[in-house]
Design a protein around this nucleic acid. Sequence first.
RNA 1: UGGGGUGUAGCCAAGCGGUAAGGCAGCGGGUUUUGAUCCCGUCAUGCGAAGGUUCGAAUCCUUCCACCCCAGCCA
Length: 566
Amino acid sequence: MSDTPVAEKSAAEKPAHFLQNIIKADLSAGQTGAIVTRFPPEPNGYLHIGHAKSICLNFGLAKEFGGQCNLRFDDTNPEKESEEYVQAIKRDVTWLGFEWAGDIRFTSDYFDQLYAWALELIKAGKAYVCDLSPDQAREHRGTLKEPGKNSPFRDRSVEENLALFEKMRSGELAEGSCSLRAKIDMAAPNINLRDPIIYRIKHVAHHHTGDKWCIYPSYDFAHGQSDAIEGVTHSICTLEFEDHRPLYEWFVENLSVPATPKQYEFARLNLNYTVTSKRKLLQLVTEGHVDGWDDPRMPTISGMRRRGYTPASLRNFCERIGVTRSDSVVDVGMLEFCVRDDLDKNAPRAMCVLRPLKVTLTNYDAGKVETVTAPGHPNRADLAERELSFSNTIFIDVEDFREEANKKYKRLVIGKRVRLRNAYVIEADECVKDEAGNIVEVKARVIEDTIGKDPADGVKPKGVIHWVSDHNHIDCDVRLYDRLFQDENPGAGGSDFLQGINPANLEVLTGCKAEPSLASAVAETPYQFEREGYFCLDATYTEASGKPVFNRTIGLRDSWAKISNQ
RNA sequence: UGGGGUGUAGCCAAGCGGUAAGGCAGCGGGUUUUGAUCCCGUCAUGCGAAGGUUCGAAUCCUUCCACCCCAGCCA
């Protein structure tokens, strides 16, 4: 699946989006040689589905146009960042199927150069050390409608600024006591141009540079220059950075950078019934609403991987939703379609009875065991067949038996026949109940010579159900995941997004019975449990419980649910 | 008129002056040893609104409306 056994549709017929058009134009105008893009996450959390869109875009564009895409950690704020996140991000990008050009890059690798450029700005009279406190700086900044006021420290001499900046660097000054600002225009209608802070004091160790620095460049001062250092031609980010573009360009124009990268913005991905803000995801983890960043209910890449989503399905999803500049909210149904689409084509089939009901086949010899073979996939001859043991005691799902039912119900009913998938047709005679009236066993008969053929008497079964034999099966637990949120837009209108959590987002089933082929299941590799959905062995819970635990990736499309609910 | 953006079906999205692609969802039907898959059909007299230009406008012009982003020493 991750390596696309069934080819992903080529994008040949898909119309080009605006970034592809821009690149085509740049290329044909000789505007650029091979393009260079970059995926620049800050290592302050785990990657989620929204990042997947950015990853597919940046790496996809580089691949499509024969260029390269770098992986750069935008690590300018050590307070929130950590090595754990760096490792998780690398793993996720790789898992998604992408390979970055050369070594991993860190913005912090450029701190020396960035510092030199700050000096350059000071010497050119284009930056100054400002002693305003954060609160005072805010007051001077003005508002959205009113211009700001110049800082009283704006006209310090180059020499004084140089000396002060050196004091900032050497650690003599306290955090917040001053900052380095670019001297642009306090009356600019674009607030980002009102003398933005480009270096601040943080007496914090950095996960990558250790204690070397106690001043750190801001995002704005680091990003464009880092792009220039790496020769990035097309620096693609999300719409909220649109207002930063003039500043991005200001630095590129006013500094002796080796290249002139250009910034382009696209609309970030929004998915209904889920949240993708790092703050909210972090809260779900820290408050224990889920079991961790890789909980299968999380929209993180690691969560989706553990859930059984495949790299190809995620890539296909990102391809289908398109790339535009208009805000939109994609229906999760679209994601679910892509997951099912890939899994249906590639997942081997197996049978697993989630809620077992014993069926005794009264006309089948008690000691007899027959081996029946079943295809690995209904239309994939390349997937290995599996062997099933058929005996006189089997299990079917409680949902697949009723004492009586109308014609719409195509499963086992007393006096009626049903096909056991890959095996015999059986007919139910009676059921046994406990004192509480619960059905605990069904007694049925096997219709002779019906493996691979219809009953000789011409009475065909109405439906097909799955089963597992008592003689040979494995016991397992199954976790049925549903959407984490029941609200389409959790937290809408300023409400607490946690109120939108779906209380039924997980149902743990114990005592499930799976066919023997599942004993060799490998974690995170998908199976279709026929008539139930797609499942994969969990990567974490297995060892703890002693029994294998299967995660439901997603159920099959279920038109029966519509019929039975009406 | 603070600045910057965006409006095409329930959702995503093509279209760039020649008479509204495609996908998801939905609906109807067919095949089927998975109520799955697959296949067929159907789904905008309409492009945020109103005017205007034109033989012809989603595409050009004007005005208006709605929504999103920006006032971290976060990214």
